[in-house]
Design a protein around this nucleic acid. Sequence first.
DNA 1: TTTCTGATGTTA
DNA 2: AACATCAGAAAT
Length: 195
Amino acid sequence: MLALEPLPRDFYLRPTPEVACDLLGRYLVVQAGDGDRKVGRIVETEAYVGSHDRASHSSRGRTPRTAPMFEEAGHAYVYFVYGMHWCINVVTEEVGSGCAVLLRALEPISRVQGPTNGPARLCRALGIDGRWNRADLTRGDLLIAAGEPPPAEAIGVSARIGVSYAGPWAHEPLRFFVTSSPHVSRYPSRARRQA
DNA sequence: TTTCTGATGTTA
DNA sequence: AACATCAGAAAT
C-alpha cells in the first residue's frame, strides 16, 4: 500500500511555478470519518503567482473570500464558482504574497468515483467543498502526500485555462500537466512540451 | 472536430 | 456584471 507521507511545509515555500510543476505525480488524499480514504494522483496544475498576476483572485486584493490566499503556505484555498462548482488550491510562498496552485486534474488511485479531469470535477469526485477551506494539507484529513514526480520530458506546459480576461497574464506558461496522462483536461489543445 | 450557450449563485 | 466550470447542442 502507499506510504502517503505528507509533503512538508517547506515544499510550498518556493516559487509558485516550481511548486506547481513539482506537485505533478503527488497524491491528494481525503480521509473520511468511517475510514474511507480517497486518493488521486495529481496530473495537472496551474500557478497563480501573486497579487500582481491579473488572472489570480488575489489580484483584486484581500477579501473574505480570498483571505486564505494571503495566509500560511501549505493550506487549502477552496472557492465556489459559477454558482455550482468548487475548486481547490494550495497556498504557496510567504504570508501576504497571494500565491497559490490550482489543482486541475487527477488520476484516480483509490475509491474515487466519477471523472477527475477538471478542477470542479476533481472536487466533486473527492467530496471536497467549502468545509475544507483553510485545511492544513501538511497534516490532517485532507493532505498532499509524496509520490513519484514524472521525468521533466514527460511534463507539458501551456497557458492557463479560462483566464482570457487577464491581459498579458492570460498567455503566461503557468499550466503544467503530465503529457501522456489520459486524465488531463484536454481543452484547449495541448501545448508544447517542456525542455 | 471546434464553438456556443444556459445553468447557477457568490462576489465586489 | 463578471466569474480560475461544465454539459450538451450546434456548427463546421
